[in-house]
């Protein structure tokens, strides 16, 4: 399997990455290199092996349902580019 230039542009677009044509082609070559590694791995017989969702064979530790955070809005807003009335301001987005 290999990617087309158009697919690379689509992935870049979804990730909000600006990608000039030359870079897109270089990225396509790199990604296809990864695909060839995957192809090699797919040659291994894995029938009967349950897919893992995490490389470590551990299970999630759970936290008790308790409020442990205090209000540190002033600290966080001091490093924000722009705030008003307690809100973080960002360039206007309406979907």
């Amino acid at each position: 399997m290999s990617l087309t230039l158009e697919q690379v542009r689509r992935i870049a677009d979804l990730a909000r990455l600006e990608m000039p044509d030359a870079e897109a082609e270089a990225t396509r070559v790199k990604l296809n290199g990864i695909f060839s590694l995957i192809e090699q791995m797919q040659a291994v017989d894995t029938s009967g092996v349950e897919p893992m969702s995490h490389p470590q064979e551990l299970s999630q530790r759970l936290r008790e349902d308790r409020v442990s955070e205090s209000d540190r809005r002033d600290d966080y807003q001091r490093i924000a580019p722009q705030t008003e009335s307690g809100l973080y301001l960002v360039p206007k987005v309406i979907e």
Binding site: R63, V67, S68, E69, Y76
Partner: peptide, 22 residues
């Protein structure tokens, strides 16, 4: 009482961002 992945409160109606932790 607290959020699904953090210890911030889920109480409704607080002032903006007073219950938004790191």
């Amino acid at each position: 009482a607290s959020k699904i992945f953090s210890g911030a409160s889920t109480a409704f109606g607080a002032e903006p961002n007073r219950q938004a932790c790191a």
